[in-house]
């Protein structure tokens, strides 16, 4: 039956009607004595309610997860950018390719080389300089047939020699710094200033001796070249460059030294330790003899090789 078709049956119960009087009959019993005390006692004995469980499902949780991922990614990018901008990555020897390097690795056929470490930078630069010097040391095209051209060639050669001396000095400084760092990492005490000064002095002395020897040889060769040019002879690039020593030119017994010289310091050290004691003693004696013969005018009591050598 619909509400609208029920007529008066479903209407309000008006006061004073028999139904209202019947419903109003009787009294409601009151709450018993001590009801509040019982409820309060039960409430105080009740354990603490458990915390509300987190809703892990639903579309909002997905949005929250995505937002956290985005915020985390943006944070990582910001930190990485800040570290790269402040040079922190370079201090930690972490290579940071430039935009040009990345573009070259993508587009160009030549692969982008990784950024060299600080310790290898000097060595790499010296190798690059040597490569640049060796094929075309002075960049002279055609024969040299005048004293002016010869003087210009000597000037360019001297400029390159000065540059190579600077590179060698940088390599020596870097090797000394690496050795000090290695000793510190191994828990060894660093060299005292006096020891460091002694090493520097030995290196400088060795370089000075080498320089004097080279200068003497150069002076002879240059005087010879000047005489040939003044005599009307045309000098070629091959005549100016120092002739490379061949295996046949090496003195007797130097093959073992050449083999050791081509090794890395670590390989050389291991190969030296692998030799029998008698052979090591024989090689050391031979080395001392050769050095004594080479430095006959100023014999050096120290037989230990220096980093410059």
């Amino acid at each position: 039956m619909s509400v609208n078709t029920q007529g008066h049956d479903g209407g309000p119960i008006l006061p004073g009607t028999p139904l209202a009087r019947a419903l109003s009959a009787g009294a409601v019993p009151p709450l018993s004595n001590g009801f509040a005390d019982r409820v309060v006692a039960a409430a105080e004995a009740r354990p603490e309610p458990l915390p509300e469980l987190r809703r892990r499902s639903g579309r909002w949780s997905n949005w929250r997860t995505g937002r956290r991922l985005a915020v985390g990614f943006a944070g990582v990018v910001a930190l990485a950018s800040a570290a790269a901008a402040t040079g922190l990555l370079q201090q930690l020897a972490i290579p940071v390719p430039s935009a040009g390097t990345i573009w070259a690795s993508i587009s160009g056929p030549a692969r982008a080389a990784p950024a060299p470490s600080p310790s290898a930078a000097a060595a790499a630069s010296s190798v690059a300089t040597d490569e640049a010097v060796a094929p075309q040391p002075v960049g002279i095209a055609g024969p040299i047939d005048t004293p002016e051209e010869l003087g210009e060639a000597f000037r360019r050669v001297d400029a390159l020699r000065d540059k190579r001396r600077e590179v060698r000095r940088a390599i020596i400084d870097q090797r000394i710094a690496d050795e000090i760092a290695r000793r510190s990492a191994a828990g060894l005490s660093p060299p005292t200033p006096a020891e460091l000064a002694a090493v520097r002095e030995r290196i400088d002395a060795a370089q000075s001796r080498r320089q004097q020897s080279v200068d003497a040889r150069l002076k002879e060769r240059r005087e010879d070249l000047q005489r040939r040019v003044e005599a009307g002879e045309a000098i070629t690039r091959r005549d100016i460059l120092r002739p490379q020593a061949t295996r046949q030119d090496l003195p007797e017994g130097s093959e073992a030294f050449e083999t050791l010289r081509k090794m890395t310091p670590r390989e050389r050290r291991e190969a030296w330790r692998a030799l029998p004691p008698e052979q090591r003693a024989a090689l050391a004696e031979e080395y001392r003899t050769r050095r004594a013969a080479a430095r006959a005018p100023a014999p050096n009591p120290s037989a230990a090789p220096t980093p410059a050598e």
Binding site: Q6, D9, G11, L19
Partner: peptide, 8 residues
């Protein structure tokens, strides 16, 4: 409405 009708 139904409750009142039933009551009556």
């Amino acid at each position: 409405h139904r409750a009142r009708a039933s009551l009556r």
